[in-house]
């Protein structure tokens, strides 16, 4: 999010359609950082996760400003229903599985965008007035934001996992997974050899006569075998024209190599590579 930050240098002037809200990490800081906000508007139905009218679109969220911080900052306008921080604007990908505490941990780095969903549309209007007030403070005494050494120590502490918890989660996941696989297999077995309504029977890798696997490697192998078979039948340098052709090819190769060498030499000459010392 380089662009908006640069705008800031020219003062609090926000780009068209946006409102600039000054924020500070702590009271000690002298110059504020600006968040750019506007009402989240997209064509009907393209974004289902962020309801229109009550969603605020926030740009230029600094790395030290977490979800909780945003929620707290904007709660002065209206109570916040949810906050969504992501790298790029756009609808949130459907989170398929329940979030795991140990696997696929992803943090959004750098300066980000956020969607703040208020409980009521009036929140949006209230936000616009924030720009006129003094900077909002992210880290206060009641709600300190950990930075630097303290932050790293706490993230180190978080990286130390509790084996029991981890084991429980793994077991639970594997149980569902095994169940799923078992179901799929049972279904496949049921369909084995049973023709569909047009009478086609699906050939699978299971059963008495397994078919070829439908993979790229397998089809390449077949092609390769064909080629080899053909090559075995062919006689080399049998006919006079074949002989001629080989010779011609040989000379062509030499020529090509010569040309390449010449090019290389020209290049080296240009780089003065032939000065021995």
């Amino acid at each position: 999010m380089a662009a908006p930050r640069r705008k800031r240098e020219t003062g609090a002037a926000a780009p068209v359609g946006y409102t600039a809200i000054p924020i500070k990490l702590s009271e000690k800081q002298r110059s504020p950082h600006y968040l750019y906000v506007k009402e989240h508007k997209v064509r009907e139905g393209t974004d289902t996760t962020h309801p229109p009218n009550r969603t605020l679109f926030v740009l230029n969220v600094p790395p030290y400003c977490t979800k909780a911080c945003l929620s707290r900052l904007f709660s002065c306008c209206w109570s916040v229903q949810s906050v969504d921080v992501c790298e790029k604007p756009g609808p949130r990908e459907k989170s398929e599985a329940p979030k795991s505490k140990f696997f696929n941990l992803k943090t959004v780095p750098g300066f980000r965008v956020a969607y703040v969903v208020f409980k009521n549309p009036t929140g949006i209007q209230a936000v616009k007035s924030l720009s006129l007030q003094g900077p909002l403070v992210i880290s206060s005494e009641s709600h300190p934001v950990k930075t630097g050494i303290r932050k790293w120590i706490s993230s180190y502490a978080a990286s130390v996992v509790d084996p029991v918890e981890l084991k429980a989660e793994v077991d639970a996941f594997m149980q569902t997974y095994d169940q799923k696989i078992a179901e799929e297999e049972a279904k496949a077995e049921e369909e084995e050899g049973v023709p569909d309504e047009e009478g086609w029977v699906k050939v699978t890798r299971k059963g008495r006569r397994p078919g070829l696997p439908l993979t790229e490697a397998a089809s390449l192998r077949v092609l390769e075998r064909e080629k080899r078979k053909r090559a075995r039948k062919e006689l080399l340098n049998f006919y006079a024209w074949q002989h001629r052709e080989t010779k011609r090819e040989n000379i062509a190769q030499l020529r090509k190599k010569f040309e390449e060498d010449k090019q290389r030499i020209a290049l080296m000459r240009a780089q003065r590579k032939f000065r021995p010392y």
Binding site: A97, F102, F103, P163, L166, K167, V170, D171, F173, M174, Y177, I181
Partner: peptide, 20 residues
């Protein structure tokens, strides 16, 4: 071994626990 990448991750984690 499961043939699904997420499941493999879990199995590996189980191994790590077991090794420890």
């Amino acid at each position: 071994w499961p043939q699904d990448k997420e499941a493999i991750k879990r199995v590996k984690a189980a191994f790590h626990l077991r090794l420890a």
